[in-house]
């Protein structure tokens, strides 16, 4: 892998996987590459963005399964049971 990708890997190991070995490596590299600190922060923001996107897809998937449970005839017993709790 080229150097920039290798740096991504080191940051990931140090900050996502809490590898002590890679944390020491990051400290040493930071002395030689001052821009590394900014790259670390950007990479952490990227992980948060990916998590937000993953959550968005997961919520969509939950809604699809829920719609099936409340519409398909094979789940009618389940549906009737749930609806019975909300009859006043």
């Amino acid at each position: 892998m080229r150097t920039s990708l290798h740096n991504l890997e080191i940051i990931e190991e140090a900050f996502l996987n809490n590898s002590k070995e890679h944390q020491v490596l990051i400290e040493a590299k930071s002395l030689l590459e001052p821009k590394l600190q900014k790259d670390i922060l950007l990479q952490l923001v990227t992980y948060e963005a990916v998590k937000t996107y993953g959550r968005e897809l997961f919520k969509r998937e939950i809604s699809e399964v829920e719609n099936e449970l409340f519409s398909q005839s094979r789940f009618s017993a389940f549906r009737q049971k749930i609806l019975s709790y909300f009859k006043s």
Partner: peptide, 13 residues
């Protein structure tokens, strides 16, 4: 995966 991570990180930047 790392190429994508780099691409997205550059967009974040």
């Amino acid at each position: 995966k790392y190429k994508c991570l780099e691409k997205v990180r550059n967009e974040v930047k």
